[in-house]
Design a protein around this nucleic acid. Structure first.
Lengths: 212, 212
DNA sequence: GTCTATAGTAGGATAGAC
DNA sequence: GTCTATCCTACTATAGAC
């Protein structure tokens, strides 16, 4: 926040942390593997970040910020749910090629029983949900879906589902792709729903009344 | 598979492994913590299972088998997507109350960079997807969705998404519930789609043609 | 700020007594 | 099959020289 002219050790550690998670997984990541990836001394992890967990949290957050910023214009250009999914798939493919398929996902898993990691991960996750929420709100304007859906909740659900898919793909690549295709097909349904317009809206409303 | 009359040490280790993951998370789970939870000696982990990873894989598999069996009749009674989701939510709530919200999810994360863990986890995951696939195939019979959707792929996507939601809920309980609600609302849409029947089917088909 | 060295701890795994 | 004892490795974290 204060000094922007130090892309040195501190930044190398942040990058090294991500590299370590990519290569060894969260459980295989330590101050030593991070330092090795960063090409710096192991003790500097503690000097600059206090603990491994704090470094991991910071690294995850920074990386996500950059990633979100990098995709901001693409998100802004989205005009339909399928396009949103398309951006998601592109993003996913890029992460995959870059090797950090599931860095956030693994952090999320590690955060389950690590309160020190949980807070930064929550914040990181919120960066994604925020972005998606904005898109959803714009895309769903005038759609019957907007009348039923809790947009923030939906944004969280989408983000969470995406994380699950990343984890699954990490263990079963073919299955992951297939799942993605299946969701894409489902998105067609939602669009059809939108195109039905007034009729769907009417049926929808009555359906909702029954439900409440 | 051979001896069913030994609910002793081996079983205690299997249970202890799950207990350890529940309590300490995957990263905090070791032969020692497992043995402590099981009330047996640490060396027995290696005598009976060879390695901690093998024990974890076996434990996850067995637990999932039991869980799937326990919910088999409830799955069999499902007649709509919303009911499927309802069963999913019940199941989720039960897991939550029992404390093993995200055992499978955490295993999946750990398996990302651990081939020894990956294979059993893949198999375990397949138990869930298989169950869901059966339900989907039955529920979607005659539905326009069935004509678009790759059912096995969809089953995998649903399972994976569920895992993601579990991880999210583990870090943000309120957010997790809200996501679940949002999905529930979306499910209404799908049902409306089904009820539209012939019209939707027609629109759907033309939409698909455009897409291909 | 960065390095070496090291204390202290915990974990995987095995040997060997029982 | 189960336990004790133990080896070795790897980790977090700090102290102190530079």
């Amino acid at each position: 926040m204060i000094d922007q002219k130090k892309p040195d050790t501190k930044q190398r550690l942040l990058d090294g942390a991500l590299a370590a998670v990519r290569e060894h997984g969260v459980s295989g990541t330590s101050a030593r593997t991070i330092a090795a990836a960063a090409g710096v001394n192991q003790a500097l992890v503690f000097y600059h970040f206090g603990s491994v967990d704090d470094l991991l949290g910071a690294a995850c957050r920074q990386a996500t910020e950059q990633r979100v910023a990098h995709y901001a214009d693409r998100f802004a250009a989205v005009t339909s749910l399928r396009e949103l999914l398309q951006v998601g798939r592109t993003l996913h493919a890029a992460e995959l090629a870059q090797g950090n398929v599931s860095v956030l996902a693994q952090m999320l898993a590690a955060a389950q029983s690590n309160e020190r990691l949980a807070e930064p991960i929550r914040a990181t996750f919120a960066l994604w949900t925020g972005e998606i929420e904005t898109v959803l709100r714009r895309v769903l304007t005038g759609s019957p879906i907007a009348e039923v859906a809790d947009v923030p909740g939906l944004a969280q659900a989408i983000s969470a589902a995406f994380v699950g898919l990343e984890l699954f793909e990490g263990v079963d690549a073919a299955g992951g792709r297939r799942s993605m295709e299946a969701i894409d097909q489902l998105a067609v349904l939602v669009e059809v729903m939108d195109e039905l317009g007034p009729l769907a809206t009417r049926v929808l409303r009555s359906k909702i009344k029954k439900r409440l």
